[in-house]
Amino acid sequence: MIVGFDNVSLAYEGEPEILREVSFTLGEGEFRFLTGPSGAGKTSLLKMIYLAHRPTRGAVTLFGEDVTAAPREALPALRRRIGVVFQEFRLLDHLTAFENVALPMKVAGINPNQYREDVRELLNWVGLGHRIDARPPSLSGGEKQRVALARALVAKPDLILADEPTGNVDPVMGEKIMKLFIELNKLGAAVIVATHDITLIEALGKPIMHLEGGRLHDQPTTPPAKKGKRG
């Protein structure tokens, strides 16, 4: 099991619970969409998976380990197995696009000769091969999102979490990104994509987790696949 939530609740300090008794599992090679209205708790749920928050109640399992109360020292190794595309990009403004994408490798202490080509290839693939030395403040929202995507993939993650990954890119790039997620998933990576984009969900026909009012209302269901414009 890659991710397991068992009656997990989350409340930020002094605030009501934003997630209530959420339970689900995500196995190896599974693909899920996470849907729900704004404020439903999608981002909070993803944050708990990438270990930015601990549950107020319940138990969280990640890569087969109970991480509910795991010691702080155990978290970095788990995080290195997760690639996250943040909704707000979260790039380092003082680093170039190349350095931002290479960040997980730098943190892992890997020799630049071993990842230089990988980083260039990813940046070329997202259409930013000509902007590798640009810093985030000079990039558009869509370009930042593509850099964030490349950073999420560079360390070959076992689990990919993407929060509105197509929200700031044009439809063609959005389609490319989703195709890539599907291909990565086919090769074994587990994927969770949080999105509002019903067309995208319907087009790919992957199982859905629907959050509303902090509760997971529907267990994963597979909507009828439709041949939408995103194919």
């Binding site: 490319k176 890539l180 291909e183 074994g188």
Partner: peptide, 12 residues
Amino acid sequence: SDEQNIAERFVR
């Protein structure tokens, strides 16, 4: 496809 190529490179 391009996506398949990239996926093969970036899956462990």
